[in-house]
Design a protein around this nucleic acid. Sequence first.
DNA 1: AGCTTTCCAGTCATCGCCAC
DNA 2: GTGGCGATGACTGGAAAGCT
Length: 320
Amino acid sequence: MARKNLLANLTGAELPAGNSMTAPPAMRLGEPFPASGSARGAIGAVSRSIEQIRSHSVMDLPPDLIDASFIEDRLAGSDEDQSRLTASMREHGQQVPILVRPHPTETGRYQIAYGRRRLRAAVELGRPVRAVVKPLSDDQLVVAQGQENNERKDLSFIERAIFAAQLEARGFGRDTIMAAMCVDKTGLSRLISSAVRIPRDIIQAIGPAPKTGRDRWSDLAVALDSPRAVEEARRVIAVPLFPKKASDERFNAVLRSATAEPGKRDKATIIKSDDGTRVALVRNDGDRLSLVVDKKSQAEFATYLVERLPEIYARFCARV
DNA sequence: AGCTTTCCAGTCATCGCCAC
DNA sequence: GTGGCGATGACTGGAAAGCT
């Protein structure tokens, strides 16, 4: 189980690959949390947090007393995944507690470090949520949240990028963010660069794109340096059918639009039947796509196609 | 089944910028 | 001039998908 590994791994507080920092000395409970910007402090905080978490008992809390973390780490996720988790919790109960801290400004309330989906499932089931309650500094909270995300391994590149960018925007030092996300400075630089360079509305419209990795997001970031490409991307995400596509398909559509050269006509594609008969010609002009059927040789097919187009379109709409 | 291609992510080297 | 920091290009190995 990933979360068991989280606790097991973090007590060792391994450094990110490529990180030249040395392992922190053992810290005593109760020592003040060092200021962000210190690599030793950040890593040491993880070790200390987990040691403290282990020593705390699990409580059942009303979900309505728990507020979101000040850093969002997920784009809109799949309802299907959430339903599965809710069903599992209904059948088997909540196996793994979430981590919360007492709310820094509101007495009697809590703020979640990780376990948002389990919290949402508890809300849907109308049950209290099992939680470890632990006073955490902001740094400790984001490091715990980041480490949990790393162990879960189901955050996409862009979700990690946004998480990293939000941490930096809130003033966390790069060392703290590197510790939280288990990346070296190169990886962190690429994460933040992608999240910052791509307009947030375009990222939100695309969604998490779980199969799309660093290089292609970087390609999109480079392409969107051009205002024309941004305009083109926004035109694509405004199409009514766009939200119905899978997230990775949405990414591909935006990347295609952002990297298409204006005014450049694609080479025409000839569509042939199995016996090699030329059926139609497809030409992509960027803004429009033309389908040309030769009426001299394919008059019957041309008529058939025009008559059936509404039906084909209706089937397409039902598919997506 | 085995080969090829594509994609992802880790790593290294290098560069530019900035403070001292 | 030097060192620290962040950004970027290039290379690499591994995994997954596609093809024969």
